[in-house]
Design a protein around this nucleic acid. Sequence first.
DNA 1: ATGGCACTGAGACAGTGA
Length: 258
Amino acid sequence: MKIATWNVNSLKVRQQHVIDWLELSHVDVLCLQELKLPDEKFPRADLEAAGFRSWFAGQKTYNGVGILVREGIAVDETSIVRNIPGFDDPQQRVIAATIDGVRIVSAYFPNGQAPGTEKFAYKMRWLDALREWLDTEMKTHPRLALLGDYNIAPEDRDVHDPKAWEGQNLVSPEERAHFVRLVELGLTDAFRKFEQPEKLFTWWDYRMLAFRRNAGLRIDHILLSADLAAQCTACEVDRVPRKWDQPSDHAPVIATIG
DNA sequence: ATGGCACTGAGACAGTGA
């Protein structure tokens, strides 16, 4: 099974990119973030015509997450969870589903704006709630994958210019400590399980020709529980759709299980 | 600071988010 994550920065604008990429990549499960549309605008029928069923938690303007699943793969309809249970939040950032026996979590972590701001404090609270929920979730679902836009670059090698970024949002010690705490639940960064080229990122600012300069960050991740990590045979970033016309600022990340 | 993209309410483009 190939599972992937992609922050599409508006599914309305990127719908055709998603459909084209599903065809190219041969993934079985695609977690989406930043749908930026309410549920009634979700292009369910078009994706179904492309061979994928979808589950989503959308909202107007901001956020919104979804999971696309290739036709024929078993999805437990009773397993769908939207948002972090017990964490009251109008922002739609989490959806989970049990797919072919694997607990798949699609998550759009808060950006945080800058350390010291109210948005950063929200990011910290959200990360606490996510970790506590996953801790219990992993006890009932030993096969679990957390995919999404984490808005955290875990290490300096995940940053094009660590000196310029030092202490800033997305790389601050507080955020990195949260990433470590997630790993300490028993999760493995699928990307780092394998030898990778240097300076391979997943997000590049639209401004200042950042993609052309490869001035990026690795902030989109796939964390796997021990069971899945043991069966993971590949993890790669696909930069191709970042080169298409009117691209998302993020590239998809893919993990192959089995 | 820099300054690209998507979105909103509005019916042009400034404000917000990331």
